[in-house]
Design a protein around this nucleic acid. Structure first.
Lengths: 153, 153
DNA sequence: CGCTAATCAGAAAAAAATACTGAATGCAAC
DNA sequence: GTTGCATTCAGTATTTTTTTCTGATTAGCG
């Protein structure tokens, strides 16, 4: 399926504010509600829109510390990767985890309450995994930018 | 303001699916619509809910490559950080950017179309910034986990 | 006990989403 | 050229949801 400029405008609006009513969107792009509604349903069905979420304020919820981790696995063990992946998916502290190229294996983004909580997480959860060989932690001091919005060209 | 278990349930539901109707939420947590509605409005006003967004499928939109970057700035120049921050905020390829502790200064998450597009971005945008001294790039090979949902305890 | 504040259910009103109808347009086949 | 088909749209009707309003229940407290 090919997106036209109207679809792109709708996607751009929705990824910034999913609470916009169809009428509001219609008004912003000079259309009536019918085509806007139909297009949104189509975009959902075709998989351009993955899901609608509300973004919570992590500080308000006591998760003030963000840490990026580089993890290297013990390549000797054949099942290392599967074991590790499985474990990571079930850790609520880990928001993002990807296999990356370079001189380590995984990049993680972790959020916790504070340094003490990270120490707990590090010692009892992450480094406790048998497949883990090495971890480097980078503490976030200041968040310059965070967005879930991607450019819709 | 203090959250009670009902508030936490609502937040947990909403951060996973912001399209749930108040009636559906009410039914899931055994309440009527009135208190659910009142609580959501309160949670928005108090800042526990930052915003509602739709998450788009980046592959569908041609952004197939994710790259994490470590950037080191030239500390000699006094205005380096401000200049860099300003520039980053205006780059649509950069989804996340944070100042971090450790042997480099910034951690970035970048999404682009492919390797060629990254090369373009790297050469003409990122390394073109005067304040940038060094960049290390880590290409994402496989995304194990990605979520915007944080544990609401 | 009586007062107040907080929380809730249920119903009513307002607004939104969804479904339906038909008009306008573009395009391909003949 | 014109017939037929598909696409896109505006306008309206219907259904569903949100929002507001009213009053009941409960818990805390002097």
């Amino acid at each position: 399926m090919q997106l036209d400029p109207t679809d792109r405008k709708i996607l751009t609006l929705l990824q910034d504010d999913a609470q916009l009513t169809i009428k509001e969107i219609a008004s912003k792009i000079n259309l009536s509600v019918t085509p806007v509604h139909e297009r949104i349903k189509k975009l959902e069905k075709e998989g351009f829109i993955d899901k609608y979420v509300s973004l919570l304020n992590r500080r308000k919820l006591g998760k003030s510390l963000v840490v990026y981790c580089n993890v290297t696995l013990d390549k000797q063990r054949k099942e290392s990767f599967e074991d590790f992946n499985q474990a990571i998916v079930n850790m609520s502290e880990v928001l993002e985890c990807s296999v990356v190229s370079g001189n380590f294996d995984y990049m993680l983004k972790v959020i916790v309450e504070d340094g003490e909580a990270y120490n707990q997480f590090y010692q009892q959860k992450l480094s406790a995994l048998k497949s883990v060989l090495h971890i480097s932690s980078y503490f976030v001091i200041s968040e310059i930018k965070y967005t879930t919005g991607i450019e819709v060209v």
